[in-house]
Amino acid sequence: MPSQPVSTSVDLPDPCDLAKAWIDDEADVADGSGGKGGHDTTFRICCTLVHGFDLGDADLMSLLEHYNATKCAPPWNHGELMHKLSNARATTSKYPKGWLYRKMLRARGLWSSRPGSGTTRATVAPRYEAKWKLDFNLEALRRVQPGTPWTVERLAAASPVNVETTTTADFLRHVFGMEAMVLIFTVFGSQGQYMWWRGRSYRLANRPGVAAVPAELPKGGPDGVWYLSQPVTGKWEPNPRETDKLGRPKMSRRSEESVRSWEHMVLEADPVDEVKRDPKKMAEFETLWLGFLVQLPLPIKAIYTSAGKSTHALVHLPAANKERFDAMKKMVGPLFSKLGADPRALKAVQLTRLPGCMRGNRLQKLLYLNPSPDPTGITIERGTASV
């Protein structure tokens, strides 16, 4: 009989938090000196994270970077980590997805292997699996399409802002306005390298107490450029969910404590590996995903590519606080995950690709931009105009 979580007055721990704890407490050190098997150890850890916690690529990469910084000697470069993650995704496991997460829940008394036995507490459906995340269904995506297929060219023609002449700075101005502070990253797992504010950009120090200096926005990087989807305060704040070895909260300028307002939700396309590996299915998925986005009755501000196998949509869904945002996320999550969105990218504090920047030699391309989106969705064949 399958195991069930035990009912509790608190939410189940986030899989990312338990994965990080597992890395800190149990993951082997990867010693790459003198042919001691550093590669094999790192790859084994990567496979455990992929299958044991069932996380999205962004979360997995962040965890791998934490493992790399704390237990790899010498550390791997970012490209090597991405290569190991890609290979780990292609492996299979004799255990079901998320097995290590459930094992850690059982150790904390939050998961019963035999419902009703050995405990007086009732068993309930998993909160994190409360059907807010569903398996991707390509046939379902095919059924929710407009009459005429959507292409990148057709989407650009429907954009109120000319996407061909919009610069990165223009994009930030249209999306956030002039007063919002926007945190920009060239290293995904960092605290951000740049800030855009009032039409100017600044290079940031990597620690508190050092003044920012004027600098041009980054034009690209080996792994691309990201921005934080919510405007921030620009201040370093203690993050109680991340602590140092002495148990003190780490300082962060990208955590929820540094968010000024909850403005946007990111829809990030993430089909299953079977689709990604098949060029024909992937090409079909990209067209179907655009068709799905243009029919959504939601105020979409922007659509852009990752310069890889994903297209992102930025939806204007302001919330009074993070709790309201999270409640809204759980309402829309089932539909979005079933039709190809990565449910992990729906989180309130999310990095997303910055259009107009290069990812290696590929462009993170802007496909659609509307600074004042209609709440009912994209207006078909609006026609290009300057805003």
Rank of each mutant, 00 (worst) to 15 (best):
A211G: 01
W111L: 09
A107H: 03
L217F: 10
K235F: 13
T233Q: 05
R89I: 08
W76R: 11
L366M: 08
L183M: 11
S229G: 03
C357S: 15
Q193E: 15
G52L: 05
G220N: 05
I303S: 02
P249G: 02
P355C: 04
G147E: 10
P334E: 04
Q4K: 07
R344G: 13
W76K: 10
G247K: 05
L60N: 06
C47S: 08
S190D: 09
H78M: 04
R106D: 06
G340H: 07
G189D: 12
W99P: 00
R362D: 12
L18C: 09
P375F: 06
A302K: 12
S7A: 11
Y101K: 05
L267E: 00
A169K: 01
H312V: 06
E242G: 00
N137H: 02
P371E: 01
L293Y: 05
P355K: 07
L100G: 06
A90D: 11
K97Q: 15
P126C: 13
P208A: 08
W76S: 07
K20D: 10
S386A: 15
R198H: 03
G38L: 08
D223Q: 12
S310Y: 13
L141K: 01
Y202M: 14
H174Y: 12
E179G: 03
E65W: 09
W196D: 00
Q193P: 09
S117L: 14
T379W: 00
Y227R: 02
T167P: 05
Y67C: 03
K330S: 10
T352K: 03
V29H: 11
A283R: 12
K20A: 15
R324A: 11
V6M: 07
K97G: 11
L217H: 02
K329Q: 11
A205C: 01
T166A: 12
Y368Q: 11
R154F: 02
L335K: 10
T311K: 05
T41R: 05
Q191I: 00
S62L: 13
T48M: 14
G340D: 03
L60G: 10
P13V: 09
H316Q: 03
E179A: 11
R353N: 13
R198T: 08
D57S: 14
P146D: 04
G291F: 08
P126N: 10
K322E: 13
A130D: 13
N321E: 07
A30S: 13
A156E: 09
F53N: 01
S9G: 06
H66I: 12
G109L: 04
G333K: 02
E257C: 05
V294Y: 09
D24R: 15
S113C: 05
W289F: 13
H83W: 02
K276F: 01
T48S: 11
A158Y: 01
T384R: 02
G199R: 06
P279A: 05
S252Y: 13
M181W: 04
W76L: 15
Y194W: 11
A385Q: 15
R127M: 10
S112L: 09
C46Q: 04
H78K: 06
V259W: 08
K322G: 00
T42N: 00
R200A: 08
G118I: 04
T352M: 07
E129D: 15
C357V: 09
G189Q: 00
E268F: 03
D135N: 07
